[in-house]
Design a protein around this nucleic acid. Structure first.
Lengths: 195, 195
DNA sequence: TTCATTTGATACATTAAAGTATCACATGAA
DNA sequence: TTCATGTGATACTTTAATGTATCAAATGAA
């Protein structure tokens, strides 16, 4: 599978773009929930022919690699504007959670063990997201938004997983999309202890 | 692969038992982290020959099904004695977390999307663990250990994921095994807000 | 309506992993 | 030490998924 070369007459390049994006989005979701899903299952989810996958991606492996790159790009696009706002750590956390929960598939995709193969040339992307969360967690500690005696790696890991859990729970229809970011924030900061 | 039939002369049945348990434990861990791992990778992790897998399990599919059954059994064995103690919900939570964190692989295995196939005859086991957590969450609410206005499914999902996150973080060597249950409990009840 | 381009269905080829069989070596209870 | 049994290595077969090629149908901009 490979991306079509540009021709001098482009009659429906938007259609190709739409098809490719649809495949990437659906593939991301399917593989986030089931890394063993076949190309046939991905094609069905994306409502395209299996042959169409090969028109855009050279192989299953390349599809997955592009999913990783795309996931990282999406997460970067979503979080960079927030960082550039130079908000307080607390407000940054809130904005982060709002944009990251809907991106749960992209989120989880980068953390999948399946992708941790050497020589794929995209290893660093795996760590990007956890680095983003560590940086944020450091700022939260520095600004005393969170406790200072909890290991940083634990704080970042919990935030990571809360965001993914919210995404899955929304996908399962168990909580409303609008409620999800608030639940993540509440759980992360306050826990569930009855007051 | 299939379990050997009993013969009238059993010279080293314990060895078989040890081999089978080793395979199950290592397979559980490997597949919890990478559901796409091959039988070769599982065999290597378990330090057995690939042919040995087929001496105990008829097929990859049957191995996985037995992992699910074994995971559920382990979780049931670990949690039933706690329930039978009739402790307060708060103390039950603490005991649950202590025994479930080390079983993170078993834990996560049951929640894996990969296994949600109809007709496997073990679908109900997938829900057992979340049911256990929901029952516990309900008691926590009833005894006012946790807030009463948070959706039950969210409380259970977060507890579920905190336990698994702890298991992975210990496995990665980022937190000490002894610290893990305490961190889970603290995060679940108090969150990270600086006081 | 036209028609250039995109796509789905499907037949076929290839490949990687699963599954089987066999034999020599390893193990450990007796 | 013996030797029945368990196991690893490996060759081979089977299978399921990947990957390729082709053609008719679908699509949608012009």
């Amino acid at each position: 599978m490979e991306e079509s070369t540009n021709s001098s007459v482009i009659r429906d390049n938007n259609r190709q773009k739409r098809t490719r994006e649809k495949v990437i989005n659906l593939a991301m979701q399917v593989l986030a929930k089931n890394p063993t899903a076949s190309l046939n299952e991905i094609a069905e989810a994306a409502e395209v022919g299996r042959a169409t996958l090969f028109r855009y991606f050279k192989s299953r492996k390349q599809l997955i690699q592009e999913l990783v790159v795309e996931a990282d790009r999406k997460l970067e696009d979503a979080t960079r504007p927030i960082i550039e706002k130079n908000l307080s750590a607390r407000d940054t956390l809130e904005e982060f959670v709002k944009v990251l929960v809907p991106l749960g598939a992209s989120f989880h995709f980068l953390n999948s063990e399946q992708l941790h193969s050497e020589g794929s040339g995209i290893e660093d992307l795996y760590r990007n997201q956890l680095v983003r969360l560590k940086v944020l967690s450091k700022r939260l500690r520095a600004e005393k938004v969170v406790a200072t005696d909890i290991p940083l790696v634990w704080i970042a890991a919990v935030l990571d997983n809360l965001i993914y859990t919210a995404w899955v729970t929304v996908l399962d229809g168990d909580i409303a999309p609008n409620d999800a970011p608030g639940l993540v924030l509440f759980s992360f900061l306050n826990g569930f202890a009855h007051l």
